[in-house]
Amino acid sequence: MHRRCKEVEAVAGEDIDMNKAIISVKALVKIYKMGDVEVHALRGVNTDIMKDDFVAIMGKSGSGKSTFMNIIGCLDVPTRGQYLLDGVDVSSLTKDQLANLRNHKIGFVFQSFNLLSRTSALENVELPLMYNKKITSREMRERSLNALEAVGLADRAHHFPNQLSGGEQQRVAIARSLVNNPVVILADEPTGNLDTRTSLEVMGIFQKLNQQGITIVIVTHEADIAAYTKRNISFRDGRIIKAIEVDKPRNAAEELALMPVIVEEDDL
């Protein structure tokens, strides 16, 4: 009974006014204990991420950006501090409640795509909806096909990941992150395993989704990828050292159109 109440609470609040923060963290501290040694991954982070924002989180490895990502992705809980996701205080939730929150409010995109192998693109995209009790099989199929269409892969629905290029695999992963209508998409180095051109494609999709009103947070260490976002937050040693608005975000779709077309030999 208790769980059901929480579930309802988590789903509520679909319409958020423009000024409301989707993600709001205050004095976030994360300490890992490696044996006797304490590692301070986050040393008091304060930030708000508003609806419709497109944020790049930057920093060297060990700067705490991944830990930050894990916490705002509800994969991990902070040691101290407050984290409100879409108005819900996450800090005190149980494992199951966190899973439920991930299912309803968050979409993940990973550097290494993380698609299920030997599973069709469509079935991969369906995955988050499998864990949503309220969705019927037909709805699941429809929404998954729509998500694939949104990333331009409707014709590849029945391909397996090993039959898709890296860029296509990442687009399937984006479709998967979209399918549950999350309040925010979190992407961890989404272009890290991709070449320049496919990176542009992926950033183009993110920009398009952002224009449709989806809040996106990406982690990257590439400055030129961050240039396609609206706001850059830099981490160092577990703290935010710089948060800047990007003056004039670059437009991935336009740049892609200007790039010389490379004809893959396979396609001949």
Binding site: A99, N100, R102, N114, L127, Y131
Partner: peptide, 13 residues
């Protein structure tokens, strides 16, 4: 890894 993916999209233990 598959278990991780499933958990990240909302699978409970």
């Amino acid at each position: 890894r598959e278990i991780g993916i499933r958990m990240s999209v909302g699978a409970r233990g």
